[in-house]
Amino acid sequence: MDANKRTFYSIPYMLWIGLFVVAPILLVVYYSFFDLNGNFTFANYQNFFTPVYLMMTLSSFWYAFLITFFCLVIAYPAAYFITQSKFKQILLLLIILPSWVNLLLKAYAFLGIFSTYGAANSFLKTIGIGSKQILFTDFSFVFVSVYIFIPFMVLPIFNALDKLNPALVYASRDLGASSWMTFLKVIFPLTSSGVKAGVQAVFIPALSLFMITRLIAGNRVITLGTAIEQHFLVTQDWGMGATIAVFLILIMVIIMIVTGTRKKGVL
């Protein structure tokens, strides 16, 4: 009786897990075994291991790596300086605020800034470099992605730095370590959990965002996400799209295991 009551109230939640967590993953795997005409086949997996798809996966990784790397390089010092500030809560809020602005609007802003007569080109002209094609290049794709992901990198690193006991830093300095050594041997290792969480929050979406590549990079950059969207919504080849999705899920699981199972920072 008691046990029955307990399981009874949780039915809506269990239904949700069954319908929207378990079933979709199984369906993606199931669909990856079918070709365009609905015949059972392994051809999608064979296709994935052809140079075309492998190159695409590799370049998708390369872009995601670049984006994550630049995010980390910019975000770590920013997070560090914020923790040192008297106004750290307000500064943190100011870092987070842009992440609440619709992602598409931010991408759209760069359509204007990077356009032929936009702000970036007029700046290049005034410093004497002259106008360049910026929009629809690899550079613009990486720049805009880094811009969008910076808050997601700053937040976990800030949380880790904020928890760091300052006595450890003082001890290290007292014992004769230079500030660089202190950073390398004390601060960075103790905040690596934040860095891992940040890398996770940036790398996986960077592999899969398709709207930025479409808007900013024209069709020059094709990520795994772009390929999935293309197969599902344009060419209607769901089998191939599902196959790429299976690999993306596998990659995601591997990254989660490598960087430790942490939740994505919800604000």
Binding site: F20, L27, I204, L209, G225, A245, M252, K264
Partner: peptide
């Protein structure tokens, strides 16, 4: 933790 494309694509199938 799932990327949005995966959620979108799998829900479309569902």
């Amino acid at each position: 933790v799932s990327p949005d494309v995966i959620i979108g694509a799998s829900f479309l199938i569902l």
